[in-house]
């Protein structure tokens, strides 16, 4: 990449917008995943009884089962959410940046 293109991209407000949107979404979703997972680990360490409580009186299924499924699903849904957002919004913005850089 030559200096011209570099300067043009850096000065492009769309680039600044892309960087801001993409990094802030990335870090936000990372934080959500970390909170969900380490929240679960801390719960295991300090309040394991909660997860062992039956979901309703007389049930064998414990609260831990839906919580476990929820964590697996949340990993999948968070990645799906990011990919959708990136495919629709970020890629369009990025195409414009690349196009304008080469003019």
């Amino acid at each position: 990449m030559n200096d011209d293109i570099l300067k043009r991209v850096q000065a492009n407000p769309k680039f600044i917008e892309l960087v801001h949107k993409k990094t802030s979404l990335g870090w936000k979703l990372t934080l959500i995943m970390l909170v969900i997972y380490y929240g679960f680990i801390l719960m295991l360490a300090f309040a394991p009884k909660v997860l062992g409580t039956p979901i309703s009186a007389g049930a064998t299924t414990t609260v831990g089962i839906p919580v476990g499924i929820f964590i697996i699903l949340s990993a999948f849904l968070l990645t799906g959410f990011y990919v959708r957002k990136a495919n629709n919004e970020f890629d369009a913005l990025n195409r414009q940046i690349v196009k304008e850089a080469k003019q």
Binding site: L25, G26, W27, L29, T30, M33, L34, I36, Y37, F40, L44, L51, T62, G64, I65, G68, I71, I72, A75, L78, T79, Y82, V83, A86
Partner: peptide
């Protein structure tokens, strides 16, 4: 029983983070 599920979760939760920060 349940401990097996806990253990497997650890292997999964790294993936979203790879996507958000590293992959692209």
């Amino acid at each position: 029983g349940y401990d097996g599920l806990i253990y497997s979760m650890g292997f999964l939760v790294g993936w979203p983070i790879i996507l958000f920060l590293v992959a692209e």
